[in-house]
Design a protein around this nucleic acid. Sequence first.
DNA 1: CTGGGGAGGGGGCCC
DNA 2: AGGGCCCCCTCCCCA
Length: 471
Amino acid sequence: MEMVCEIGTNRPSGEPGRQYPQRWSRVDITTSHQSSLLKQLDQQRRQELFCDCNVLVEGHLFKSHRNVLFGSSGYFRMLLSQGAKHCTEPASASFDVFSPETFTVILDFVYSGLLELSSSNVIEVMSAASYLQMNDVIAYCKDFIKSSLEISAKEDDDRYLCLSDSSMGHERGGDVEQTGPCSLNAQPTIWAEDDIQSKEYQVDISPDVTLLPPSPAQQPIMVETELEPDQDMQHQFTTLVPERRRRGAPKRKASAGRSTASDESPIDLQVAASHSAQKADELYATLPTIVGVVGVFSKDSNPSMRFKCPFCTHTVKRKADLKRHLRCHTGERPYPCQACNKRFTRLEHLRSHFETIHQARKLVCRKCKRHVTDLSGRVVCEGSRRYRLCSICIQETGYSGMTLEDEEVGQQQHAATDEPGLLLGVDEAEGESQDPSWVITDDDDLAEDSGADLIIQEVDDSDEELDEKQD
DNA sequence: CTGGGGAGGGGGCCC
DNA sequence: AGGGCCCCCTCCCCA
């Protein structure tokens, strides 16, 4: 039997005469049988033989087998099980929520086990897989994204941050501030550059990778359908991505930690330069029109439109909110505080931080509660806390570290203006502009003590990254 | 040990 | 669609 001979070729080729009876197990035969069967089905699909299911994707017709779709997709399980009694008629389904190209990738995977992922299609494939309730595809996409984002270097990222801060004398204790965009000790990139550009994700069709559907009863239609698998994914994701203890991160929510797109720390600088600044933007740019749709499935009505996070079970009404939410997964923090280097996911958080820490109307010494000025007091960083100490308390407490303003603000203020400037940075991937892109000139909002303009400038993070690495 | 307050993070939603 | 505001939550520090 050809199939059996094929198994034989799996034996070590260097020793043709040697017998390996133990390899002729039932498992091997089963695997080979499944593979062969799948190839047959794929051939039938391509020749449109015995196709009993028509899938229309944005006007593009895909002919396939309802058994295969049933066994691969929770969505089709629901759809086909409803019409199971009328199986003499070809089943049909229509989709407008993903592109034919995306469905081609998914259908090819269903029939071959080969998932052709690239950075340009992974989000949409994952979204479509989410829509179609194909949890294995979602898992592979997540792995792909995780690898391309290199979030696994997060712990090393922290190490860098610690080094970076300690070198400035800011850091004490265990809690680490995110002050730098890169790390010194990064894990090797899992995906080579070419891999990220176009990775054919080989998926083993093993007996463990079941194509058999769970019972339809286990496939609730509501959004909760995706809860358990996603939680598993989430667990997998967060397990693979060691999460630093975060403040403010609700435990009930999924999060992937603070590693930012620009904070990634690839060991290959070339890869870093070409990918770091693009990662999150790339993800956003490739967001499909409908990232995920959840709600009640009905044959006659569309599901209620909500955008589903591909990383967790969170859904939002607006794409912009999803983009914002995704930052908690990608770790992107595009808004660095130019005064203390701390980075934020949102401009409003940065602004709040800046007003609270660096632009307080009444500057009060944390220790003695006395009023201080920019001259008589300094912002110091201790652990995750930033506060002001007067010069006396700094001396009394023996705070030996360099204050934040000594270096950062000093340099940047002089660079920007002779007045005590307050700089807020906004990362831009392009980084084409070194000029302040916009200036807040609301004098009423300016602190009496600072008396300076609030400048938010664009910062080329990648350049910053490279500079810091060179330093 | 505990409660209060500050700082930071995230979601909803309005403009 | 993006910016911004409000609210709530968590974490941390301190009295």
